[in-house]
Amino acid sequence: MTLAAPEAGKGAAAAPPPARDPMSPTPWRVCRAFRETDDTFTLELIPEPGREVRPFAAGQFNMLYLPGIGEVPISISGDPAYPHTLVHTTRAVGAVTKKMAAIRRGDSVGVRGPFGTAWPVESSEGSDVVFVAGGIGLAPLRPALTQLLSRRERYGRVVLLYGARTPEDILFRKTLREWRADFDLEIHVTVDRATRDWRGNVGVVTSLIPRVPFEPGHTVAMICGPEVMIRYTVMELERRGVGPDRIHVSLERNMKCAVGFCGHCQLGPHFVCKDGPVFPYEKVAALLNQREV
């Protein structure tokens, strides 16, 4: 197994160079597969012996392929410092992800990637950082948090606001616990619908924004979740005075090729697959507020 050195010191949205044959998947082995919540699961993949391992950046995604079933874009939710284990957490919603949910240790999965742009983790050094995640949107943000926390001292206040549908839908409970215990990280979790035993916050994730401490003028925000959530989150952040140039969002569109050949993921002038999925909000603000773009 050869491991290319990760490129260090790049600015915002630095991403490794793409693969030479971007259209053919490479087989990886499932080393762990487990359920996160009722409808989400995590796959941890390791390369076949002798295969090249490509570095990835926080926010990038892979195309995961099950032969004869199909392929889906899934963000990488593992640690960019350990690219030889690819961690993917996703929701079983379509035929492919439902089939993936049934995968077991030792099975093979085709992987194309990594693709797309990255969260501006490095360029945010020196700032307060607010992460806002909704639902499964925590998965694509986890690598950014992991990376940031490994150099926690370089940042100001760091806040994670996380909204889930119900307490049962909360992802990465263990990771959240560890982060709370081990790091100077303020975490607020809220649910849309409380259940009986829930003692935490109730209300949409946007309602957390007014009450958390950060210095709006020196804050970078990274948002990942449903597009509706993104729009309202941005609105709340702007009310608090966070400039649109310091807000970054991860978007979802139909992706087939992941390299800008198939055209499906276009959002105005952008190919979400290669110009995104992480965008500075400024770039997409007008498009997100237009219908059926």
Partner: peptide, 17 residues
């Protein structure tokens, strides 16, 4: 115009796709 889509198919047993 360059847009394409892909279709994944397999034989009945799923061993070749």
């Amino acid at each position: 115009c360059f847009c394409t889509t892909v279709e994944d198919i397999s034989d009945l047993t799923g061993s070749t796709a």
